[in-house]
């Protein structure tokens, strides 16, 4: 039974008249890389701020490492986060900024600062003042800060914002390594699905403050994967033909007028011919399979 690092139950946050989070219920398990996907203003940042106590919840509950309310403060030691844009002291260098927080957190070994700068490839810039940093460097310093205190749970709000393609790829490798080698659980939000797809193992779609869907990568693959959609009113008979004549059981019945076939993907014509030859009235046969963007749009529309 995997330990739930973060669990929310009907978490709601209302700003005056604006409902930023509406009855959000999610679970992040140990070892997950949990991708939080939503449009701008969907509530991703609000969710993150609420569970790190930067904002008070309006109603609902959330449990970090199984603890909530008063016991929460000590648990937050095990979290590292980067929420909204990275904020540091302009007049201090990268190293000094991290040292400031290292002293504040009571970190005993100052070598960790160098280690974490090395992790995000900021070692050459460690003595440059924060105000001279480019957006990408600021972002990387923010990520370095999140990793500073050996966290067990890392929360990153749009971490690839401002990074160039090489930086994105390096970050992806770093995060994957941390997750695999040290078992660090992660919650990463982004509105760039394709990037998140490469790294996360579970996804959560959020829109207008509501959780539309929580889904694993395997399930997502299955729903998005390429298939042949066969539209017919004789679904049962068609299934028999698929098994007997075409020798496949790799299909899914969508409803009583549509079958999705995951075999013969290059040979829809043969499928059509076989079905027709066996008196199955094929209303339509076409290639299905959607990109992640289309999938996202579809479920957002439904939700």
């Amino acid at each position: 039974m995997k330990e739930a690092i973060l669990r929310t139950e009907k978490l709601t946050k209302k700003y005056k008249d604006f409902l930023a989070l509406d009855q959000a219920t999610i679970t992040v398990n140990k070892g997950d890389i949990y991708g939080l996907i939503g449009r701008n203003g969907a509530g991703k940042t609000t969710l993150m701020k609420t569970v790190t106590t930067l904002t008070n919840k309006t109603s609902g509950e959330y449990y970090l490492f199984g603890k909530n309310n008063e016991d929460l403060t000590e648990c937050k030691r095990r979290i590292g986060c980067l929420i909204e844009s990275p904020a540091f002291f302009e007049g201090m260098t990268a190293y000094q900024n991290l040292k400031y927080y290292a002293i504040q957190k009571g970190i005993v070994d100052k070598k960790k600062i160098d280690e974490v700068l090395e992790l995000v490839k900021l070692t050459e810039s460690k003595d440059k003042k924060f105000k001279t940093f480019s957006l990408g460097m600021k972002q990387r310093l923010g990520i370095a800060f999140a990793m500073l205190d050996n966290p067990d749970f890392v929360i990153l709000d749009e971490p690839i914002n401002g990074l160039d393609p090489i930086g994105i790829s390096e970050l992806r490798d770093t995060l994957k390594k941390l997750n695999e080698e040290q078992g660090v659980t992660m919650m990463i939000s982004s509105h760039i699905l394709s990037e998140l797809y490469l790294i996360a193992n579970r996804f959560c779609f959020i829109d207008n403050g509501r959780i539309i869907k929580e889904i694993t990568k395997e399930e997502l693959d299955a729903e998005c994967s390429k298939s042949i959609a066969i539209k017919t009113n004789q679904v049962k008979e068609a299934l028999v033909i698929l098994e007997k004549e075409l020798g496949t059981t790799n299909y899914k019945v969508i409803d009583d007028s549509e079958i999705r076939l995951y075999d013969y993907l290059d040979n829809a014509g043969k499928v059509n011919k076989t079905l027709a030859a066996n008196d199955i009235d094929v209303i339509g046969i076409y290639e299905a399979g959607i990109t992640l963007e289309e999938y996202f749009k579809s479920i957002v529309r439904e939700g």
Binding site: L54, T73, C75
Partner: peptide, 17 residues
């Protein structure tokens, strides 16, 4: 300055009440 810089969120999101 901690508030105006927004660096206060770094502190409050860690184990400091």
């Amino acid at each position: 300055s901690d508030f105006s810089n927004k660096s206060v969120k770094n502190t409050l999101s860690s184990a400091i009440s």
